[in-house]
Amino acid sequence: MELLDYMKAKRILDNNGIHSVESMYVKSPGEALSFSGGEPIVMKLISGKALHKSKEGLVKLNLVKREEIEKAYKELREKGDRLGLKPYRIIVQKTARKGIEIIIGGKTDNDFGKMVLIGLGGIYVEAFRDFALGVCPVNGYDSMRMIHSLKSRDVITYQGKQEKEIEKLVEKVSTMLKKNEWIQELDLNPVIISENGYEIVDIRILR
């Protein structure tokens, strides 16, 4: 399996009505600065050789000032070279709101084909293993039951306030997986749930 380029993956999600945070590849600190436009941004190094960006220190958060952006850019480049992560690219993203991190994913099961996953996300995925799976296509009732089966149900839905939004997102992901049989695995992790809905911060599509 190979990892699909981030921006390509983002476009596929966009085409399926699944919007993720604004992102762009940059070739210089200057490009990153103009992308920022005074708003705090996130800078990441993306390489097929680095699977867990945050664990490996390849993510720089909350960059606003010119010096911060330049420093982060320089450090990421140095780290990428030192760890032998070439070829790599630097990507910048708008900073998401604070909230609860969830994961929405997809897999191809040997027996049942495409399956969609929802669970408590970010660093908690493996620690708590609080997730639910559904076989695609899932309808609104299925995704509602998946969410209700989670221990973290009330936490991730903001006491139910974001339940409908998350339900719809799970359905959309299921539809996308069925339409694109070539997608072997998918991680949207984290998806940040806040008072204002959801924001997808990281995307991995394996083909």
């Binding site: 099961d109 040997n110 027996d111 049942f112 399956m115 639910a132 799976l133 559904g134 076989v135 899932v138 299925d142 039951r145 089966s149």
Partner: peptide
Amino acid sequence: GSWESYEAVFRQ
């Protein structure tokens, strides 16, 4: 098959 998938299908 993997149990988690089976369990999910049964529940669903």
